[in-house]
Computed example of a mutant assay.
Amino acid sequence: MKVLVPVKRVVDFNVKIRVKPDNSGVDLANVKMAINPFDEISVEAAVRLKEAGQATEVVAVSIGPAKAEETLRSALAMGADRAILIETDDTVEPLAVAKILKCVADTEKPGLIIVGKQAIDDDSNQTGQMLAALLGWAQATFASKIELGDQKAAVTREVDGGLQTIEVKLPAVVTTDLRLNEPRYASLPNIMKAKKKPIEKRIAADLGVATAPRLKVLKTEEPATRKAGIKVTSVGELIEKLRSEAGVL
């Protein structure tokens, strides 16, 4: 069974985000970029399935500029077999991403698509669900455990009340949560091998999907600085401040 894993190039989660002086967006100049952490978990899940003999091939796919090739090479170094780059310079929104991934799935014909539940730059949490709807496949979101059986998958997912285990028929789309696994560190030999592996490149415009953003960012600003707390001397003073100053009572 082939497993398809979308990966996104985002600002490294260790980097402190800076807003452009004109508030038009996030300043990406000279900023370290990396694979989206949830997508890294997806790659690890797919590679483990292959190591367990439940998958035959892991294909990583990324949508973005030519520099996204670095993200794909990170996936290859972790154990992915092939990589596909869908090139576009547009800021691609979740619906367009889902449509492009559907085109890729139609040609690659995977038995399972493992998607990070969200990207840490826009936090949309939409692509996996939209992709499943476009393909007409079963979906299981927020997975913390995946077990494959005979043409089906048992997925333990995180919900508000705790854990829920559902069974879906394959092919299916599964979105990963943080507790699914801990991604491995790519070894130096694998990193060197990944640099030599060919990456299949396609142009997003050739797929017939409109990638131009439909949303316009009016303003981007940093969150307000948190105010220092105060100490109260009694419960009565606390209640009075909550009533008169905070206005919550």
Rank of each mutant, 00 (worst) to 15 (best):
M1R: 14
M1W: 02
V3K: 04
P6W: 00
V7N: 04
V11T: 12
F13E: 14
N14S: 15
V15D: 07
I17H: 08
R18T: 12
K20H: 01
D22G: 09
S24A: 14
G25K: 13
V26E: 12
D27A: 10
N30P: 05
A34K: 04
I35H: 00
F38Y: 15
D39F: 09
D39A: 07
E40N: 03
I41D: 00
I41G: 06
S42F: 00
S42Y: 00
A46M: 01
V47L: 00
R48M: 12
L49H: 12
K50V: 06
A55E: 00
E57N: 05
E57Y: 03
V58A: 10
V61M: 07
V61P: 02
S62K: 11
I63A: 09
I63H: 05
P65H: 09
P65K: 02
A66H: 11
A68Q: 06
T71H: 09
S74L: 07
A77P: 04
A80I: 02
A80H: 02
A80L: 03
D81G: 03
R82L: 08
R82Y: 08
A83K: 03
L85K: 10
I86K: 10
T88W: 08
D90N: 15
V92W: 02
E93S: 08
V97C: 06
V97W: 02
L101F: 13
K102M: 11
A105K: 06
A105Q: 06
T107F: 07
G111M: 02
V115Y: 03
G116T: 05
K117Q: 10
Q118H: 13
I120C: 09
I120G: 05
D121R: 04
D123Q: 04
S124R: 06
Q126A: 12
Q129M: 13
A133M: 11
G136A: 07
W137F: 15
W137M: 03
A140E: 04
A143F: 06
S144N: 05
S144M: 04
S144Q: 13
G149S: 09
T156H: 07
E158A: 06
V159K: 12
V159A: 11
L163K: 12
T165S: 04
K169Y: 03
A172Q: 08
T176R: 02
D177V: 02
D177C: 05
R179N: 13
R179L: 12
P183E: 00
R184I: 05
S187Q: 14
L188C: 02
L188G: 02
I191P: 00
M192P: 09
K193V: 12
K193R: 14
A194R: 12
A194F: 06
K196D: 12
P198E: 04
I199A: 03
I199F: 08
I199R: 05
I203K: 15
I203V: 13
A205D: 15
A205F: 06
D206A: 14
L207C: 06
G208L: 04
P213Q: 09
P213D: 09
L215P: 02
K216A: 10
V217R: 12
K219C: 10
T220W: 10
E221Y: 13
P223I: 03
P223E: 00
T225V: 15
K227C: 01
A228D: 15
I230W: 05
I230M: 11
I239T: 15
L242V: 13
R243P: 03
A246G: 08
